[in-house]
């Protein structure tokens, strides 16, 4: 059986069930890299130039950790998920960057996802499937199953109020506490315990119920993004502005914490939009910035102070 490596980083938390269904249907075996560790992070940081972001460095670390464990590594280039909505250049060039910084990595399985070029999207998916079968109908079936799994995954998290770590990794989060906080940001920051210094458990340890973007329906997030920013410009804007805006507007939580990677261009704009909105609506809000230099002590102080403030303000 052909072994396909999946780095447990970046878009993994967003699309893993989709990828699993696709490769399963084509008879491939998936090898997912282990959770991020110090070694994984260090090996990625050592390879990539400083100008990229921490999540990309973590991704490269995961690719390195898969060397020798699989025949291929799946690295999609997600260019655009809807018309006139763009993705960060690091996602566009991810396969090329991977090859450039890790020349010794196994051959990459690539796919270009660009909803603005539907016709090319089909041929790109067929080209990916051709590594496993010459039968286009089989690829088509795999793609259908993949989309279906993705829909079920997303719907389940909204319906059951679950996080990706709960669904994908069998964790279970605390459901009772004396206050509640919405944690918004990209899943690769929220659910990688190494990157965020166990942020969710840290909050739960202080008696806080944590709500995340995945628990908000697509329609609600879209609407909030529209109200705050006049619609998305960036792919994955909904999980920041949409979810943050929704939680602030609804007032179902006592405060909102957003998480961004240091040096992230798109996020730096989104965080400002959220900050202004929270201020206007008079809701407690703070933004945490993470990178490989983030010290646990500084993060702990900010989180503790924010929770104190939220409780006093209520």
């Amino acid at each position: 059986m052909v072994k396909v490596g999946i780095p447990r980083a970046l878009l993994y938390y967003e699309y893993y069930p989709m990828w699993r269904a696709f490769f399963d249907a084509l008879g491939a075996e998936l090898v997912v890299s282990e959770s991020t560790t110090k070694d994984v992070a260090a090996s990625g940081v050592a390879r990539v130039t400083a100008e990229t972001c921490f999540p990309v460095k973590i991704f490269m670390g995961h690719v390195i950790s898969l060397i020798g464990k699989c025949d291929f590594i799946f690295v999609p280039a997600v260019r655009s998920m809807e018309e006139k909505v763009h993705n960060c250049s690091k996602f566009l060039g991810l396969p090329d960057m991977t090859r450039a910084v890790i020349p010794e990595c196994p051959p990459l399985l690539e796919v270009d996802i660009d909803m603005e070029k539907k016709r090319e999207l089909y041929s790109s998916v067929y080209a990916l499937g051709r590594h496993f079968t010459w039968n286009p109908l089989k690829v088509r079936r795999a793609a259908k199953l993949a989309l279906q799994s993705h829909g079920e995954y997303k719907a389940r998290m909204v319906r059951e109020g679950k996080t990706p770590s709960e669904v994908l990794e069998g964790k279970s989060e605390q459901r009772d506490g004396s206050s509640s906080v919405a944690l918004v940001g990209h899943p690769y920051l929220l659910y990688d315990d190494y990157v965020n210094h166990r942020l969710i458990s840290r909050l739960e340890g202080q008696g806080v119920i944590v709500l995340t973007p995945e628990m908000v329906s697509q329609a609600d997030m879209k609407q909030a993004t529209h109200e705050l920013a006049g619609g998305s410009y960036w792919t994955y804007e909904d999980e920041v502005i949409g979810a943050g805006g929704y939680y602030i507007k609804k007032g179902v939580v006592d405060g909102v914490i957003s998480v961004m990677a240091f040096g992230c261009g798109p996020d730096s704009v989104m965080m400002h939009i959220l900050d202004r909105y929270a201020r206007r609506e008079r809701r407690p809000y703070t933004c945490l910035t993470l990178d490989e230099h983030t010290a646990e002590a500084g993060l702990a102080t900010r989180v503790e102070a924010f929770i104190d403030m939220v409780r006093k303000r209520r």
Binding site: F262, R279, R282, P284, Y285, T286, T289, D291, H293, T294, G298, T301, R302, A305, F306, D308, M309, K312, R313
Partner: peptide, 21 residues
């Protein structure tokens, strides 16, 4: 090694900031 701002209204902290990185 750090600098902070705390915004208070009516005797309650409503916002704060710290130097980032």
């Amino acid at each position: 090694q750090d600098s902070k701002i705390i915004i208070l209204r009516d005797g309650i902290a409503v916002d704060f900031g710290m130097n980032t990185v």
